[in-house]
Design a protein around this nucleic acid. Structure first.
Length: 194
DNA sequence: GCCACGATAGTG
DNA sequence: ACTATCGTGGCG
C-alpha cells in the first residue's frame, strides 16, 4: 500500500532565501502549519510586513546581533519569535542571505484548521496557532513541526501600506513595507488599513 | 543594577 | 485614551 500523500509539504529554504519584500508578497495565500502531538493547526496568510535588516530603524536587528535578534542574523527559513508588551508573541520568518538579518512578520491569517483564536494581528496569530517564543524561536521552518505550505494564488488583489506600530522609526516608518490581501476580512488594522 | 519602553490587544 | 505585564537594550 502506498502511504497517503502529505496534506501539505514545507516550502523549500530557497523560498525564504530572497529579498524580504518579495517573500512578504509571496507569503500571501500560503498556509502556515503547526503540528504538535498529533494536532494540526493551520491558517492562510493574508497580511505580512518586511523588515530589511540592520539598517532598518524599525527592525529589532537595528541593535545588531543581540540575544533577542540573534536568529535574524542566521540562515533563512527559520522562525524568529519574540515577546512584546510582556504578553504577546509575534512570529517572523527569517529571509535573505545568512547574516543579512532580514525577516518577514506574519500579521494576520484566515483560520483553516485547529485555530485557538482568531488569527487577526500578530499576537492573535501566534495565540491561534499555539506558537510561542520559548518553544519556536529559532525553529527550522523546513522541518515537520512548523512550516509554510504552498497554496493557490490568491484571488484578492495584493495591496501595500506603511508598517503598523513602528512610528518610532522615523523615515523607515513611512515606507510601504506591509503587504495584505485587499478586502480580505481577516486582515488586521481596521477598515482604514484594508 | 536600574529604568523606560515596546513589530499588541482589549476595554472605556 | 488607558493599561496589562515583562523582556530587552541602553546606560551608569
Amino acid at each position: 500500500m502506498p502511504s497517503p500523500p502529505p496534506l501539505a509539504a514545507p516550502l523549500p529554504r530557497a523560498f525564504f532565501a530572497r529579498d524580504p519584500r518579495r517573500v512578504a508578497r509571496d507569503l500571501l495565500g500560503k498556509v502556515l502549519v503547526h503540528r504538535h502531538r498529533g494536532v494540526t493547526r493551520a491558517a492562510r496568510i493574508v497580511e505580512t510586513e518586511a523588515y530589511l535588516g540592520e539598517r532598518d530603524q524599525a527592525s529589532h536587528a537595528r541593535f545588531g546581533p543581540t540575544r533577542r535578534a540573534a536568529v535574524m542574523f542566521g540562515p533563512p527559513g527559520v522562525a524568529y519569535v519574540y515577546l512584546v508588551y510582556g504578553m504577546h508573541h509575534c512570529m517572523n520568518v527569517v529571509t535573505g542571505e545568512d547574516g543579512a538579518a532580514s525577516a518577514v512578520l506574519l500579521r494576520a491569517a484566515e483560520p483553516l484548521r485547529g485555530c485557538l483564536a482568531v488569527p487577526r494581528g500578530p499576537g492573535k496569530l501566534c495565540q491561534a496557532l499555539a506558537i510561542r517564543r520559548e518553544r519556536h524561536d529559532g525553529m527550522d521552518l523546513c522541518g515537520p513541526r512548523l512550516f509554510v505550505a504552498d497554496g493557490p494564488p490568491p484571488a484578492e488583489p495584493v495591496r501595500t501600506s506603511a508598517r503598523i506600530g513602528v512610528t518610532y522609526a522615523g523615515a523607515w516608518a513611512r515606507r510601504r513595507l506591509r503587504w495584505y490581501l485587499g478586502g480580505n476580512p481577516w486582515v488586521s488594522g481596521g477598515k482604514a488599513a484594508r
